[in-house]
Design a binder for these strands. Structure first.
Length: 720
DNA sequence: ATTCAATTTTG
DNA sequence: AAAATTGAA
């Protein structure tokens, strides 16, 4: 009898160019499995729109697998491993195939699953189904992981071997013998009853599912790609590929996308069409950014909670839930920002330009911790993607060597006139401003009273005044930077003291000399590598095991927890350590165990690294840092306040939680009904529970000393 | 050819 | 916001 294999589908919901599926089909009969396992997602439980997409995509995949002869087995569980083992036992399957994922949660989970399966004598075969190049195949000349995008992408484009042509879908599949327990997509509970009406509207704009993804690709190749270079500036209309949700769930293989676009490029190059070539280069670059996001996530698996640059750890984030709320609701008083936030809320979609605008505003004007914004994006975006969003938020928040500077403050008014010159975008999403003439549409606060009155706008009532003036925001940001440097200096001094008292050289951080803000230290996690000349790279997924908080949480919930799903989610989201910023400040001095205040989920990384896996060499940076971490105080902002329930289980907790925000009377809690109608845009948000998680958090440092001096000068000039 | 201003690009 | 590029004078 032929071997029987499980294909574990995750975010590769397609039949075409799916290496795991093809390999399994070659080996014999195939059991396609999808496991819905929210317990393993920890704080990164997918939001409503994302779950809607997933559900539709699963239905679609199931239909096509059925027609090939082996329906999709769908299960809901607390542990992926348990389900895989159970199915293996029930069917006698001896092998499991799956494609690699690179987000921090998956890296740890898959590592555990692989070990667990191996211990039970089941062989595991994993493939690359998500990237052009595996992260461990691309290094710089010194053998180090890249930390800037351009160099990385150049290297990728010049790899010795061209990416292979995409694989065809299997013609037919042999299913398992006998019947296996399976849920229907409906029974997985991906969509709450209260969410259905809102979700119904999504179906008008989007068609999840791998064959629809292929159609979208076709449409893009014949449509927006032709004008991509020029049109991608425009914030309005269909100027981009709109493929990102398809890509997130792996309905479309990046390899195929690359292949198709590349083929076009050949044609255009032959015809000497420089415009066409330009289009393709630009589009492929955005594919490159997606690759890079996976690359970073793999090589720097802490970047979902800490900036890539190891400096700037003492930046005083503003832990202000009122600001956070105003931002989410699109009530900042800056029309372009508000329009973007309303569109996000209503549709789950934003043009990349607008994502940059609103996220910059969040970080620079409001000084909210970027992780808060990132979490909100995760909860609301249709194409929410952990790796891409981490990259995006680090990019705008001064956390990357090649990203925006921290003190770069883009002016939303100017951006408004650049990206939305006619104000159409703003008018669409801010109906209250729709009658305002172009002249004032992006800065209503300057408009004469008569103009406002004529347009039916009453600032402060109808539409808010700017939540913070640009000049004030700028000064505040500079002050915060100054504060940060002071703290950093103090920190360094105390660290130096500590060393004299016996820690010795072990805490020495390479490159410590010189002004700290001149350095651009990147936190490195050393992943075991194989000598380039040793022939082929390992085909298996490597796992850098830096046990960061949420990885540990995730890992813990995989392995040990057995609480009912709903409770579990609610607890990971709300239980967190009650370390309100006020009391945290007191724990600064005289804490015997520096990690005490951190409660659950936070563990001395130097210890846990040892306890964990030998693959990893933690470098000294991290060790030094874990010592320091416990002493940090009010800039603790790692905790992301809950902005709205993403699971029914949370609703009650929320209702009882105090709403910290006075202003705007909130309509409706708990219900997730947002609609595409404008009247509903008047804001409906759940209340926020204050959720002060312990926080290792975001830190970073400006990059050049010159920059600081210059900004001081500019400030002086402004003052004159 | 040279300079300055405007525009575009920047991960 | 700043650097790089283009274009007009």
């Amino acid at each position: 009898m032929a071997a029987c294999s499980i294909v574990w589908f995750r975010r590769d919901l397609r039949l075409e160019d799916n290496p795991a599926l093809v390999a399994a089909a070659r080996a014999g009969s195939v059991i396609p499995v999808f496991i819905w396992c929210p317990a393993e997602d920890g704080q990164f439980h997918p939001g409503r729109v994302s779950r809607w997409w997933l559900k539709q995509s699963l239905i679609h995949l199931d239909t096509s697998l059925r027609s090939l002869g082996s329906p999709l087995i769908m299960r809901k569980a607390h542990s992926s491993l348990t389900v895989l083992l159970e199915i293996a036992e029930a069917t006698g399957a001896t092998q499991v195939f799956f494609n690699h994922l690179y987000d921090p949660v998956s890296l740890v989970r898959d590592h555990g699953v692989k070990q667990g399966l191996a211990e039970c004598g089941i062989s595991v075969h994993t493939s690359n189904g998500d990237l052009l190049n595996e992260p461990w195949e691309v290094y710089d000349d010194e053998g180090q992981a890249f930390t800037v995008f351009n160099a990385y992408w150049q290297k990728c484009l010049n790899m010795p071997s061209e990416p292979e042509a995409p694989l065809l879908p299997p013609r037919r599949l042999t299913g398992p013998i006998g019947k296996i327990v399976s849920y229907s997509a409906e029974e997985l509970g991906l969509e709450d009853l209260s969410e259905k009406s809102s979700n119904a509207l999504l179906a008008r704009a989007w068609c999840p599912g791998w064959s629809h993804a292929n159609k979208s690709l076709e449409a893009f190749l014949r449509g927006a790609l032709l004008e991509y270079a020029t049109d991608r500036q425009k914030v309005d209309g269909v100027t981009t590929s709109l493929l990102s949700p398809h890509l997130h769930f792996g309905e479309l293989s990046v390899r195929k996308l690359f292949y198709e676009v590349h083929t076009k490029q050949f044609a255009w190059t032959r015809e000497g069409s420089t415009v066409g070539e330009q289009n393709v280069t630009l589009f492929l670059r955005s594919i490159g950014l997606r690759e890079y996001s996976r690359y970073l996530s793999f090589h720097f698996p802490f970047t979902h909670e800490r900036s890539l640059l190891a400096n700037l750890k003492s930046f005083p984030w503003r832990v202000d839930e009122g600001y956070f709320k105003a931002w989410r609701q699109g009530r900042t008083g800056y029309p372009l920002v508000d329009a973007g936030m309303r569109e996000l809320w209503a549709t789950g979609w934003l043009h990349n330009r607008i994502r940059v605008v609103v996220s910059s505003f969040c970080v620079k004007f409001l000084q909210l911790p970027w992780r808060w914004g990132m979490k909100y994006f995760w909860d609301t975006l249709l194409d929410a993607d952990l790796e891409s969003d981490v990259l995006g938020w680090q990019y705008i928040s001064g956390s990357l060597p090649d990203g925006h500077e921290l003190d770069r403050m883009d002016n939303p008014q100017l951006e408004g006139y650049r990206f939305d010159p006619d104000g159409e975008y703003v008018r669409r999403w801010l109906p209250e401003l729709s009658r305002l003439p172009n002249e004032w549409i992006h800065h209503p606060w300057d408009a004469p009273l008569s103009a406002l009155r004529a347009a039916g706008v009453e600032l402060g009532t109808n539409y808010p005044r700017p939540i913070v003036e640009i000049g004030v925001a700028r000064e505040r940001l500079q002050a915060s930077l100054a504060e940060m440097w002071e703290k950093e200096a103090a920190l360094k001094a105390s660290l130096a003291n500590g060393m004299e008292e016996g820690l010795g050289e072990t805490t020495e951080v390479p490159g410590t000399g010189g002004p700290s803000h001149e350095r651009m230290d990147v936190h490195r996690v050393v992943v075991r590598r194989f000598a380039p000349h040793s022939g082929s790279f390992p085909r298996d997924q490597l796992v850098p095991d830096l046990p960061t908080e949420s990885q540990q949480q995730a890992a813990a919930s995989i392995m040990h927890q057995s609480i009912p799903i709903e409770e579990d989610i609610a607890s990971t989201a709300t239980m967190p350590p009650p370390v309100p910023s006020a009391s945290a400040g007191m724990s600064l001095v005289g804490v015997s165990n520096p990690l005490e205040g951190h409660v659950r989920g936070s563990v001395d990384r130097s210890q846990s690294a040892q306890a964990a896996v030998p693959i990893l060499d933690l470098d000294l940076n991290s060790t030094a840092e874990s010592v320091v971490a416990g002493g940090r105080t009010e800039s603790e902002s790692g905790a992301v306040p809950i902005w709205s329930p993403s699971v029914p289980g949370q609703v009650q907790q929320q209702a009882s939680a105090e709403c910290l925000v006075p202003e705007v009377a909130d309509v409706q809690q708990g219900g997730f009904s947002r609609r595409l109608t404008q009247s509903m845009l008047r804001v409906n948000q759940g209340a926020m529970a204050s959720n002060k998680q312990d926080s290792e958090d975001d830190f970073f440092v400006p990059k050049r000393e010159g920059k600081w001096k210059r900004t001081v000068k500019q400030q002086a000039k402004r003052n004159c």
